[in-house]
Design a protein around this nucleic acid. Structure first.
Lengths: 301, 301
DNA sequence: CGGTCGATTGAGGTAACTCAAGTGCGGTGG
DNA sequence: CCACCGCACTTGAGTTACCTCAATCGACCG
C-alpha cells in the first residue's frame, strides 16, 4: 500500500527517486483557469473514482459515482523525474494539471522524446509488460498527478464491468496515437511535422479549456525536435518560416495560430515511403489540384 | 462472428474473403454463418483457450487449461485483406501461421506499413478505442488466424483473473514495440534501420523455430521501405552494401545473416535528434549519480 | 513469348543536418 | 546597479544522406 497520510501536503515519500534540486520555478504563463489553482490548499490530495474518470474523459456511470475508493495525488516540480527507465513498475499516472515529457534514452545518453503528457493523459503504461518502466517521465512544469496503482487499475476493471472496456479503450487510444506518430515520422516532411505538432497542441489546449489560438510552449526547441525526429535548428527555422508566411506568430515560447486550416492541410511533396502504385496513382490524379494548391501556399516563401 | 453484416463498408469484398478456405476448396456455396457445424471436422479450425495462450506466449494456468471455450480459426490467402480502415471493429486476431502487414493509408492513397504480424502476434487492437479499425491488415502469405472476439477477450479477463493481467501485458507489449519504432524512425540512420530490421526479423524467426541465419523475406523492398521510413531504392542499396561488406548475403528475397553482432551494433554517426548536450548536461547535474551510472554502463561500449 | 512486377544500379538534386556565429533573456555576484 | 555568464533561440553557410528520376535486368505468369 502507498503511504496513506493525507495531511502531508509536500509528499516526500518519493524522495528516493527525486533528488533533484527543487527550484520552485513557477511559470509566468497564460492560465485561463483552474490549472495552477487546482491544488489550492493542501486539501486536494485525493480524488474519488468519479473524478478520475472525468480526468480520463471516461463516461461515468452511477456505480462509478458511488465508488468510494480514493486515489492519491502527488506533486512534482519542474525538472523532477516521475520515474526512470528500468525502475520497477507498479503504478500508472494520470495528469491532473501540468506538463510532462516521456523520453527514451539510448546507449549514448541521447534523449528521444516520446510524448508530452498533459491534463487528462495517462502514462506509465509501457511498464506493464516487463514490470519495469520502459521510458522516463519528467515534469516540464509543476505538476499534479493522480496515482493509479496498477493493482487498483485491474481491480476496477473487475468490480466495474463498464470500466473494463474503458481501460482497454484508453490503452488502445495510446496505441493509435503511437501509430499516428510512426506514420508521421515515416512519411511527412519537416514542415508538415511541425505544422501537425502545432495543430495537435492547439487541439489539446482547446480540450483543456485554454485558448487554441495563443499559447505557450512548455518544451524547448530541442525537445520538439527530438519528438518530431528533427534538429532544433530545423524546428526553429520552420517556425520562423511559418511566421513569415503568416500561418503563425512566434515569440520564443509564445505561439499564435493564425491559419489553422493551412497548418492542417500543409503537406508538401510526398518525401519518403510514398509511392503507392496503382491505388495511389489513381487517387493522386483525383487529388492533383489539392496538392498543387498546397504547394503554392507554401511555395511563396 | 466475423463481420457478416452486408451493410458494412465492403460487403462483397468481405464475403469473398469468408468464402476462401485455405485447405478446403470444396464448399463453394457455404455461408459464413453456417461455418461452425460444417467445417469443424476438416482439420484444425478451432482452438481452445490453452492453445490460444500458448500462441500468445502467455503462461497457462490449470484453470486456463480446463476452459472449454473454443476459438474459431479462419484462413486467408496471399493478398487478401483481413479488415480495412474504418470497418466496424469487434474482433482481435492472433496469427497461428502465415505473414501479414498492417498499413495506414493517407489521404493520397499512400500506404504506410505499421507492422508485420507473424506467428504468435496479436493485431486489430487499434480498433478498440473508436470501435473501428484504425488500420488495414493484409495477408502477405496464406494465413491461418485465430479469431478472438473482443467480447470474449474481455470476458476472459473477468473469468480468469490471472489472464486479465496477461491481457494488459500483451497490449503494453504492443505499445513498447511502437515506442521502439518511433525511436528508430526519429533517431537512426537508414543503415541502422535496415540492420535493426534484419536483426529483429531474425530473432522473430528464431522464436518461431525457423533459422535465424537464413530466411526469406515475405515483403517487398517497397514495403520494407515504407515500414522503415525509407524509399525502396535506399533499402535495396543498403542491403547491397551489407552484402558487399560481408554482413549478410542477399539474393532477392533470400537473406543470409553473416554477422549478427555487427548488425546489432551498427549505428553510424548520430544523424538526427541526437546531441544531448545542454539538456543532458543539466540533468546530469540534477541527477548526477543516476545518469552517470547509465553512461558508464553503456558509454564504454 | 511478351507483359508485368520487383530488384538493382547510376546520376543528379535537395531537404535536412552540421558547424558556427550572434542575439536576448534571466539569474548571479561584485 | 551593472557586468557577467549560461542557456535557449535564431540565422547563415556548407555538407551530405537520402530522395527522385531513370535505365536495366531477371523472375514469374498467362
Amino acid at each position: 500500500m502507498l503511504s496513506t497520510n493525507p495531511s502531508e501536503h509536500r509528499p516526500e515519500f518519493q524522495a528516493s527517486i527525486l533528488h533533484t534540486n527543487g527550484h520552485a520555478n513557477s511559470h509566468p504563463n497564460v492560465h485561463p483557469n483552474s490549472m495552477d489553482a487546482g491544488w489550492q490548499r493542501q486539501g486536494k490530495l485525493w480524488s474519488n473514482l468519479k473524478e478520475l474518470c472525468e480526468a480520463l474523459r471516461i463516461p461515468t456511470t452511477p456505480s462509478v459515482a458511488e465508488e468510494e475508493l480514493l486515489f492519491q495525488h502527488v506533486q512534482f516540480k519542474t525538472g523532477q523525474r516521475i520515474y526512470t527507465i528500468g525502475q520497477s513498475f507498479d503504478t500508472l499516472y494520470i495528469v491532473h494539471s501540468g506538463f510532462l515529457k516521456t523520453v527514451l534514452i539510448d546507449e549514448f545518453g541521447n534523449e528521444q522524446v516520446l510524448s508530452f503528457p498533459m491534463k487528462g493523459d495517462l502514462f506509465g503504461v509501457d511498464g506493464i509488460h516487463t514490470k519495469r518502466y520502459a521510458s522516463e517521465a519528467v515534469a516540464l512544469s509543476n505538476c499534479d498527478l493522480i496515482l493509479l496503482p496498477f493493482k487498483k487499475f485491474t481491480a476496477l476493471g473487475r468490480s466495474h464491468a463498464e470500466l473494463e472496456h474503458a481501460m482497454y479503450s484508453v490503452m488502445s487510444r495510446e496505441l493509435v496515437r503511437e501509430q499516428a506518430m510512426v506514420s508521421m515520422l515515416g512519411a511527412l516532411s519537416a514542415e508538415a511535422r511541425v505544422a501537425r505538432f502545432l495543430v495537435s497542441l492547439a487541439e489539446r489546449f482547446a480540450d483543456m479549456g485554454y485558448s487554441s489560438k495563443l499559447f505557450n510552449l512548455r518544451m524547448t526547441r530541442h525537445e520538439i525536435g527530438s519528438y518530431l525526429g528533427l534538429t532544433l535548428e530545423t524546428v526553429s527555422r520552420t517556425l520562423s518560416a511559418f511566421n513569415e508566411i503568416g500561418l503563425i506568430t512566434v515569440d520564443q515560447r509564445s505561439i499564435g495560430i493564425k491559419d489553422a486550416d493551412a497548418l492542417k492541410t500543409l503537406r508538401r511533396l510526398p518525401p519518403s515511403s510514398s509511392r503507392a502504385k496503382q491505388v495511389a496513382a489513381k487517387k493522386a490524379r483525383q487529388n492533383a489540384q489539392v496538392i498543387s494548391t498546397n504547394w503554392s501556399q507554401l511555395g511563396t516563401a
